[in-house]
Design a binder for these strands. Structure first.
Lengths: 216, 216
DNA sequence: GCCGGCATCCCCCATTTGTGGTAATTGTTC
DNA sequence: GAACAATTACCACAAATGGGGGATGCCGGC
């Protein structure tokens, strides 16, 4: 690909999708004021962005997750991925929770940056993404890496595995509570934590993951 | 491979892993007293067996499942498979439940015999395995075969299997309805029927049964 | 010492699920 | 044609579940 600090060649042509007008402007000024970058267009909604996509030939998209009551950024990335598989999307958002991170990466985002990132770092991250990298804010990167470790050793605590085992057996929260001599509230807490760690949202998904990954 | 009743050529060199001393002796005597077989070594634990494996060149392993508090036989077979992919392992155990059978076969066992098998049949089974066969006690064989004709064992209709598949994916009734282009009411009906046929009362139990019995 | 993970307990509330029914249509089998 | 399974659809209600909070004490690592 191009040189990381490509000041001589053609600038990186990118699109911003962001519903906050103020941030829109800041980003546009930052990009257009920096040699090597060119902000081709800014959209406040994913719908507008996707509609305009056919006429534009951006090289990259900088995408927010929360876009008002419009299509959210993750869904937008999913659709972008289907329409133009080789336009990389970098998320720039406030969401630091793993849920959003994994949803975004699964949807096809190549990078994940937290708003509040320093301008120079943002620019470096965009160059990184253009060069085939996967820029991520440090804490995000750590979290992502950890999920791979999770494959080798499961992230669940001893107690959580016990709960998961009973969850797989189809026991109700109440029944699990009775068997483990703890309150139903505690069972719920464990289950919430299990779901978060496994990145699932229901008992069925947890059961499937438990069986497939031999977590219990 | 060699002739099934290979009395003239080199005997079949095998190792026994079995924690019951009495059975150990019976097997050793049986094998060493029969032309065409040679019991190279006997181990009481999988750990000892795996440790000694590098120095031995057995042609086959006869493996028990329950090995005290040591590594169990299924795990031992899994590891044997990784170390020496072409040494076939035959399970000789009391476990007749499908759980153990499938776990063993998935781990890489080529045969599965039930303790109590007649000596002549055991010898025949070992010859069978040496010749590339897959010796199994009759009832085990039946069980294995049944998993292939999904129709007999699993009483679910085509539509019900589709619903079950989505149920395993964790989809909500509503989502299932949308994907199958039917109403949520119909999904509920199907699920009620599925639960009745599988003798379960919850999604989790259904998922487990579906995965374990390969219903989908 | 402070922070993070773990285990425990509690609250509220919307949604989902499980179960009890009924019933029409279609296709197959006896 | 009767009997039956499969598929579709609907109603109502109680129970279970999932997600959002928050709180405590304990322990181990930096």
């Amino acid at each position: 690909m191009a040189n990381p600090s490509d000041l001589s060649g053609k600038p990186l042509k990118l699109i911003i999708v962001e519903d906050d007008r103020q941030i829109q402007e800041l980003l546009r000024i930052l990009l257009n004021g920096t040699p090597g970058f060119y902000c081709q267009a800014v959209f406040s909604t994913a719908t507008e962005f996707l509609a305009a996509l056919p006429e534009l030939q951006p090289e990259m998209v900088l995408m927010d997750i929360d876009l008002g009551d419009d299509l959210n950024g993750i869904e937008a990335v999913r659709q972008l991925r289907q329409l133009r598989p080789n336009i990389p999307a970098v998320m720039l958002t406030v969401h630091e929770d793993s849920e959003a991170v994994f949803a975004a990466l699964c949807a096809g985002a190549v990078g994940y940056l937290i708003k509040g990132i320093a301008p120079t770092e943002l620019l470096a991250a965009l160059r990184d993404a253009a060069n085939g990298g996967a820029p991520m804010s440090p804490r995000i990167a750590r979290r992502v890496v950890e999920t791979f470790h999770a494959g080798t050793q499961n992230p669940l605590s001893e107690r959580e595995r016990e709960v998961l085992r009973l969850l797989c057996a189809g026991d109700s929260y109440k029944s699990i509570a009775d068997q483990l001599f703890i309150s139903g509230h505690t069972v719920r807490s464990h289950i919430k934590n299990i779901y978060e760690k496994l990145h699932v949202h229901s008992r069925a998904e947890a059961v499937v993951k438990a069986l497939k990954d031999r977590l219990i």
